[in-house]
Design a protein around this nucleic acid. Structure first.
Lengths: 254, 254
DNA sequence: CCAAAAGTGTTATGTCTACACCCATGA
DNA sequence: TCATGGGTGTAGACATAACACTTTTGG
């Protein structure tokens, strides 16, 4: 290192124009459950660079708004959903060359929605689609910029938050069965969970889910109708669910 | 919402200059244990705005470097320490007006070092100091910009990471006693931990600490000499320490 | 010898896992 | 009535919290 740093306390004769200018964007990874699989909302690019490839929705931060505000605005504009309470900032990305045209630093947000099919179609049907996360991450569907990494990080974050926060209920709509809730954990963690123990671990979390008294209609295959619950007050940090999985067994193992 | 969003796929006739320009900085919250208390490295500002107030070290990101690289460079320049593996990005801050002079978005990093007194003095003795985190957060020492919030978020993040990662060993130097390690948890979490149970919970984490065979010299008050350990391979996600605290008792309670 | 700090043993209590078994439904 | 999924019971394995007790030092 040769140059002495300029501390944040800036030098007296400061001129903004002599410091490097960046564009700042917010990108929102919208995750949802569809068909018992985790999906991400993507838009198809119509212009270079990365023309024809899929990308996560996002846009420029305005100087007059906060980062959270920009993410909330973008989410509302893209999906019509006011999901402010579900927006979580999880990373910033600024590698040189990540946008070939200019210096862009993007701040990435995670939004969890319950099945969003209709909403996505509403904005720009041809350009927006729900893609299974597995296809976006295994390279089957190529993402523009560094968006594959951003999606990967978002999914990892959800996995942690399932354990630490009440984010799971954001996937499942106003009322839900334990089977639906369990499907979220199983899809994100890639494990099978024992239904009996899962139920108990959730019920034990005081005030997290509240029984409605109603029951869901069984599927065409029959079965006992499941009790319907709604989300209680979400917990904050410090009251984690304890994960309960059969010993190291993963979904798909024999 | 009236304006239709500009998707990240930019419009065809794109001109960078028509999008808002920001300065991008990285700020590094350097935490360390000193005198059994958690301390943060701060620098005193010599120029307006916030002249005379304390701030966390940081500087401008260069267009040719990554965010992680910028943080690593700043840390090296400020403290002389190459602590790349200990740098964790934990948040981005971009509220309008957070810097009164211009639009600045900062990406905040956490660095954990073992006692850094000499190092901090080495760079710019008069301007750098280790301040107890409690004083920086209770308003006794006022921080410039939104740095109080940034420090608060950093400390919260450390608390989570203590549980989830091997970050604790970063506080304590190449060899350490269980008492030293326990002091880290107690300081960050603000609790008292039972020494016997703490020892067992750490030893149970396979391969985390490795006995050196040597023993530390007792303090002037005597006592059995403590065994010295060194850090094993740090664990990754998924092998958390279970917290072990006496029932809800907090440090300072009678 | 006494106080202090480290480290080990022990026990009651709590939690987790696996799985048996009962319940309510569609076909 | 059978197959299917929902929900409860329970026993053994395991983890945790509290604290008594032993070890090894300084003074």
């Amino acid at each position: 290192m040769t140059t002495k740093t300029t501390h944040h306390p800036l030098p007296p004769h400061y001129d903004p124009s002599q410091y490097p200018a960046f564009a700042v964007t917010v990108d929102v990874v919208v995750l949802t459950m569809s068909d018992s699989r985790l999906h991400v909302l993507l838009v198809r690019r119509g212009v270079p660079p990365f023309e024809g490839m899929w990308a996560i929705p996002g846009g420029f931060k305005r100087p007059t708004e906060t980062l959270d505000g920009a993410a909330k605005r973008e989410l509302a504009e893209e999906t019509g959903v006011d999901g402010a309470s579900l927006l979580t900032q999880f990373g910033a990305y600024g590698d040189p060359g990540r946008d070939p045209r200019m210096n862009v630093v993007t701040v990435a947000y995670l939004a969890v929605l319950r099945d969003v099919r209709g909403i996505a179609a509403g904005t720009d049907a041809a350009a927006a689609a729900l893609i299974p996360v597995s296809e976006a991450l295994n390279g089957k569907i190529k993402l523009a910029f560094d968006h594959a990494k951003i999606v990967r990080d978002a999914v990892e974050r959800v996995g942690v938050d399932l354990d630490l926060t009440g984010i799971a209920t954001a996937f499942v709509g106003p009322t839900f069965t334990f089977a639906e809730l369990r499907a979220v954990y199983e899809a994100v963690w890639g494990v099978q969970l024992d239904g009996a123990n899962f139920r108990r671990s959730i019920v034990a979390e005081d005030g997290w889910v509240v029984p409605t008294g109603r029951r869901a209609r069984p599927g065409s295959a029959g079965g006992k109708p499941a009790e319907l619950y709604r989300a209680g007050r979400m917990w904050k940090h410090g009251s984690p669910i304890r994960r309960s999985q059969p010993n190291g067994r993963r979904k798909g193992d024999s």
